[in-house]
Design a protein around this nucleic acid. Structure first.
Lengths: 191, 191
DNA sequence: GGAAACATACCGGCTGGTCGGTATCTTCGC
DNA sequence: GCGAAGATACCGACCAGCCGGTATGTTTCC
């Protein structure tokens, strides 16, 4: 009478929070390793084992999805930075060191949230604005310890590094990441 | 009998080289200030005063168009770097200084070719590869003068700066670009 | 039973791309 | 010099496919 469902998500246990989170995770994954152009609601839904309609139930539009994705990644980054800062006894350049450690993350594996963050920033002016606001706020909060131009330069370098990460993508890092990190941390302690 | 043409390009003087160049210019312009998502063959053709069919005559596919665009911008950047290097008497860090000057370009106006370059790099793995090859080759050529890790760091910072340019886009540069450039150039002369 | 969590079917719009035609340019015989 | 003829430049209509989004149905949870 009725056609067989292509997905069994309708018969399985309903786990709205789990599905919602999985949608976000899959979106981040697709964004990082298949590129911005391939971030379609169809692809995300499939990757999460849900139909397009299912995705649209959780996120009213693609816009809402990307906004949620962005917000989550930003929250993660923000948390990582806070954690790194509270473990750092030296005041001068504390934020910059945390920023560098969070964005380079030599020891951690998996896709850097910054990657997803920045790529989505390139698309949407609203997200761009949100990122700018976050950065400006953070910078203003740590103005006294991290206002130095030399520290700004180190932060720029950190941005450049993960940009290279985005571009390289083949897993092969041409330079010694650990040595670079040390060098950057060193630079934040000078003077 | 026959419909009136919406464009008079068919009756005007044929200037294949001019049109082809204009297509590339318009593509770069659109890429920089309207973003990657709006880089459609339709939009590029319209901006250049040509129909879609006309564009497809010059570039067999959108892929070919972006490749040509990329190649041209890379050629420009390459030339700028060569020019800057030959005007620099100091050997150590010569390439890095040229790279920084070309990518920051505090005095020049207009869209930085790097912007178009990098954005297209984010799309297409083939272009990403091409960029990587170019950079690797250049780096290898100037290994003796620019192999130092500190110089690598300065180059990363340059990447970070124009990335911020891409994101900000509102014309308002929060920091003193000239001072930053001086600082970076200084760093290449140390030791 | 009602709301939430999905699936399914479908639509309009836009995209890159094809195709056949027309207008202009270039070449070349004379 | 000039006119035919082929090549080149470009137009305009059309197509298939995919995208985001909607409307509606069906199942599960409380």
């Amino acid at each position: 009478m009725f056609p067989a469902p292509v997905s069994l998500a309708n018969q399985r246990k309903k786990e709205p929070d789990v599905v919602r989170q999985k949608l976000l995770d899959c979106a981040a994954q697709i964004l990082v390793d298949r590129g911005l152009a391939n971030l379609t609601v169809q692809a995300v839904a499939e990757a999460a084992g849900v139909t397009k309609g299912g995705l649209l139930h959780h996120f009213a539009s693609k816009q809402k999805l990307t906004e949620a994705l962005f917000a989550e990644q930003l929250r993660i980054l923000d948390g990582e930075i806070d954690a790194a800062m509270s473990a750092d006894p030296v005041a001068h350049g504390r934020f910059t060191r945390a920023y560098v450690r969070s964005t380079l993350r030599v020891e951690q594996t998996g896709p850097c949230p910054c990657a997803a963050l920045s790529v989505s920033t390139l698309i949407d002016p609203a997200l761009r604005q949100a990122w700018g606001d976050w950065y400006k706020e953070r910078l203003n909060r740590h103005r006294e310890t991290d206002g130095d131009l030399a520290l700004q330069l180190v932060r720029y370098a950190a941005d450049g590094v993960w940009l290279e990460d985005l571009m390289a993508q083949d897993g092969e890092s041409p330079i010694d990441r650990q040595a670079l990190l040390s060098k950057m941390i060193d630079l934040t302690r000078k003077r």
